[in-house]
């Protein structure tokens, strides 16, 4: 891990109508570091990473990737930034019309203009890296299980050897054993590539396995940031309530009757 900053967010605000989702998020991730953003549903975790990827434009604030300001970049310029990133989506977001190897090789063929045969070879290697046989490559997404879809999504995220990888709720909907397998794969893939990882999750076993640093989002603000080793003695009542999964505490769920 170096001291160089890979991603830096400064005072980022984002609202949808009257709902304030990000309320001055300030955050930085060093190169090679794995940051996990935790927080309850609707606290702005997904919006945070979508802003970094250029899928959403913040209302104000600055986001820098490798020192380059990305807020206000054109779609074409964002394509250049995104060429160095990978993303594992919550539901894997595999393309139904393409088979598994074509899904994994998609960024290589369309984004990097690689020849299909060459891209297929890399896709098969990446599938092997996440523990899937070459035969799986010929199947279509609706023919594989949820856990396998996540692995394929992970293979697609690392196919182009990205410098920055995003993981959106990587273990949601998986059984505990498969969750652990995915966590191990994420850890090893990020380490092998020497990439920077930004994960959003509310699964504490993922946090403990994947994270170097943890940030907690609450009502659109970062209310705690620190090493994963410090999370159990954070002294922050919000963090304590969240990691222990208690209903009582300062975080009150908004339940409309």
């Amino acid at each position: 891990m170096s001291d160089e900053i890979k991603v830096k967010m400064t005072d980022v605000h984002k609202t949808f109508g009257k709902k304030v989702v990000l309320d001055g998020v300030t955050l930085e991730v060093k190169k090679g570091e794995s940051l996990v953003i935790i927080g309850g549903s609707g606290t702005g975790k997904s919006v945070t990473i979508k802003c970094i990827q250029g899928l959403l434009t913040p209302d104000s604030g600055s986001i820098r990737v490798d020192g380059e300001e990305i807020v206000g970049l054109s779609a074409r310029e964002m394509e250049r930034i995104n060429a160095q990133t990978g993303m594992l989506f919550q539901g894997a977001a595999l393309f139904d019309s393409l088979n598994i190897w074509e899904n994994v090789a998609f960024g290589l063929i369309q984004g990097k203009k690689m020849k299909r045969a060459e891209a297929k070879e890399i896709a098969i290697k990446k599938l092997a890296q996440v523990g899937l046989d070459a035969d799986v490559g010929m199947l279509y997404p609706d023919e594989v299980s949820g856990g396998m879809k996540k692995r394929v999504g992970l293979a697609r995220a690392i196919a182009a050897d990205p410098e920055l990888i995003f993981f959106d709720e990587p273990t949601t909907g998986l059984d505990p054993i498969m969750s652990d397998v995915i966590n191990d794969l994420i850890r090893s893939c990020v380490k092998d590539l020497g990439a920077t990882g930004i994960t959003i999750t509310h699964d504490m076993s993922s946090v403990r396995k994947i994270a170097d640093k943890v940030a907690m989002l609450y009502k659109g603000k970062i209310i705690w940031y620190g090493d994963v080793a410090e999370i159990d003695r954070s002294g922050n009542p919000y963090v304590e309530q969240f990691i222990n999964g208690r209903a009582d505490g300062p975080i009150q769920m908004e339940i409309r009757g």
């Binding site: 394509e79 995104n82 393309f95």
Partner: peptide
Amino acid sequence: EQIDALTTLST
């Protein structure tokens, strides 16, 4: 999120 996935794959 397949359309978002396209964007993240530089397409």
